[in-house]
Simulated assay, not measured.
Amino acid sequence: MPGETVLETTRTHVKVLLVPLLVLLACSFAGGFLAAQAGGSGDGWVRWGVVALAVGIALWFAVLPFVRWFLWTYTLTSKRIVEQKGILTREGRVIPLSRVNDVSFEKNLNDRLLRCGTLIVHTASEEQGLLLRDIPRIEDFHRTVSTLVYEAHRRHDEPI
């Protein structure tokens, strides 16, 4: 849009990658151990079967979540909030800041320790609102969005 500048682009906090990392480590360890235990039995087919199973599990439960995390972005511009996600099929959602009625955030104990949280954006047309989960530095992001919403409403309410 003309006159629009990108202020911040972020992803969810890296804490969402902890379980996929543990799965990757477990698959690597278990796959390597079981492949070594299988040795050359069955002309090596057992070993390759174990390796293929470990690689398949690692791809599905570790690499795929990483790619999903990497491609899920939140962009804050001077005029709107944009959420984009998806690997093969992309989805997007745009909320003009002039349509936002309320911006709040939530943090549980883990979020407080990791300095992240959930941003809740309410518009006039939605009852539930948009939840942007696990946003890093949530207080700063909330403050920026609130300031931009205030400015957007002030510009919108000015007489022409």
Rank of each mutant, 00 (worst) to 15 (best):
V46G: 03
H156W: 08
T12I: 02
T10I: 00
L59V: 07
G56K: 06
G40V: 11
E126V: 01
V121M: 03
R93S: 10
L18Q: 01
T9C: 04
A58P: 03
E151R: 12
A152G: 02
V149P: 01
P20F: 03
F33E: 06
T89P: 00
E91H: 15
T77M: 04
L25C: 11
R155S: 09
Q128H: 13
L18M: 11
T144E: 08
W72R: 14
E127Y: 09
K107A: 13
G56W: 12
S78W: 07
F105R: 03
A38D: 07
L114H: 03
E151G: 00
G39N: 04
V149C: 05
G49E: 05
K15H: 11
H142K: 09
T73W: 02
D140F: 01
V51F: 10
A38K: 11
G117S: 03
G39C: 04
V14L: 14
D140P: 02
V63I: 09
V19W: 05
L88N: 06
I138Q: 00
F29I: 11
G40W: 08
I87C: 01
L88R: 08
F141E: 01
L88G: 13
F70C: 05
A58I: 00
L17P: 03
T73H: 08
V23L: 03
Q128A: 14
V6W: 05
Q37V: 14
G92Q: 09
G3K: 06
R154N: 06
R143A: 12
A54L: 04
T144H: 06
S98V: 12
G3N: 09
D43L: 11
A30L: 14
M1P: 08
R90V: 15
L76V: 14
L59P: 01
E91G: 11
H153F: 07
Q37P: 00
F33I: 06
G32P: 02
S146L: 09
T77Y: 06
T10L: 09
Q84K: 12
T5R: 15
H156N: 12
S41M: 14
V46A: 11
K15W: 09
L130M: 13
K79W: 01
G49V: 10
S41I: 15
V16W: 07
W45L: 10
T144L: 15
G86T: 07
V67H: 06
F105E: 02
D134K: 12
P2G: 13
Y74V: 10
W72C: 10
V100F: 04
A54D: 04
V82C: 02
W69C: 01
H156I: 00
G117C: 03
E8H: 14
F105K: 01
E4Y: 05
T77K: 06
D140W: 02
V145K: 05
G92K: 11
L21A: 15
L131C: 01
T118S: 12
S28I: 05
A36S: 14
V6I: 13
L113T: 07
H13G: 07
T10E: 03
S146T: 13
C27A: 13
